[in-house]
């Protein structure tokens, strides 16, 4: 017993070293199970308010560009609005609006990175604004990411530039879909997987969200095909896509709340449970 005690005292530095490294590794491997370490990311109050303050200074330098982007979106929405109004007029009172089950929460990005292998974005809206985990994040130019963790007035999300998360993308022309993956490297490019060889492809084809998950509505712009090849011995294309969103210059985003999500998930879990029971 005394020997053990002496051993512990003599090696206390090494043991402390081991202990701290093990704690670090536990943090590394548990980061995604965000319930337990939810407060140790940049949506916590201290870190987020530092970013928020810094951003409130820096944002003035970007105002001209942000203005331009917002003005463009405004113009686009206006033209869309008048077009839709004409259409609904011509359709008469029988026209039923069917895509109203999404609610948009405007937010500002207060921290963002593009140079890691796992990139995250911190937003200045939180649970008190109605933000919940698993809501999609979009910018005026295309999709951005998904919320994973929420504090009272801030939230943290996976950026599309994060190899742990990718949306499902669809070729607008042919309707074939597959997962979008970002494997590190260039922040302007990602890969579209699982598109079989018999699909006709061309450089410049548009890729939009498939709408198969409850996170994003169907048809939001993801990017365009930049180049593709048919690797030998495989059955799927290797497709490189040019992302529509410039992740270095986005500041204003919308968080998408799917109002029917709970109902959808309930239905889906019902089916899954039913399938396993049979």
């Amino acid at each position: 017993m005394r020997g053990l005690l002496r051993y512990l005292i003599n090696n206390h530095v090494f043991l402390l070293f081991l202990f701290l490294e093990v704690v670090s590794l536990i943090f590394v491997f548990n980061f995604n199970k965000y319930q337990s370490v939810q407060y140790l990311n940049s949506s916590n109050r201290v870190a987020a308010s530092v970013y928020n303050y810094f951003d409130s200074v820096v944002k003035y330098f970007e105002l001209a560009k942000d203005n331009e982007i917002l003005a463009k979106e405004n113009a686009r929405l206006k033209s869309q609005h008048s077009f839709l109004q004409n259409r609904s007029d011509s359709l008469g009172s029988g026209f039923v609006q069917h895509d109203t089950n999404y609610r948009y929460i405007p937010a500002r990005i207060i921290n963002n990175s593009v140079n890691k292998t796992l990139n995250y974005i911190t937003l200045n809206k939180g649970s008190s604004d109605g933000v919940k985990p698993d809501m999609g994040i979009i910018s005026p130019t295309g999709i951005v990411g998904v919320v994973i963790s929420v504090s009272k007035s801030y939230s943290l999300g996976f950026s599309l530039l994060n190899s742990r998360w990718g949306p499902s993308g669809k070729l607008k022309k042919s309707g074939f879909f597959g997962p979008i993956e970002w494997s590190g490297g260039d922040y302007r490019e990602a890969n579209l997987m699982e598109i079989p060889f018999h699909v006709h492809l061309a450089v410049g084809d548009t890729i939009v969200t498939s709408g198969h998950s409850a996170v994003f509505p169907e048809g939001l712009l993801i990017g365009t095909v930049k180049e593709f090849s048919q690797p030998e011995g495989e059955s799927f294309y290797k497709i490189k896509i040019q992302l529509a969103t410039d992740f270095r210059s986005i500041h204003f985003v919308d968080i998408i709340d799917n109002i029917d999500k709970e109902e959808l998930q309930k239905l889906e879990s019902l089916i899954e449970n039913g399938a396993t029971n049979n």
């Binding site: 704690v23 670090s24 370490v37 990311n41 940049s42």
Partner: peptide, 26 residues
């Protein structure tokens, strides 16, 4: 060691890379 751990974990919290900086710094 303890200072190194605190430094690493602070950087981790800000850059959402929990544990990685702490490990390297310790």
């Amino acid at each position: 060691l303890i200072f190194a751990f605190l430094m690493g974990i602070s950087i981790d919290i800000f850059s959402n890379s929990l544990g990685i900086h702490a490990f390297a710094t310790v």
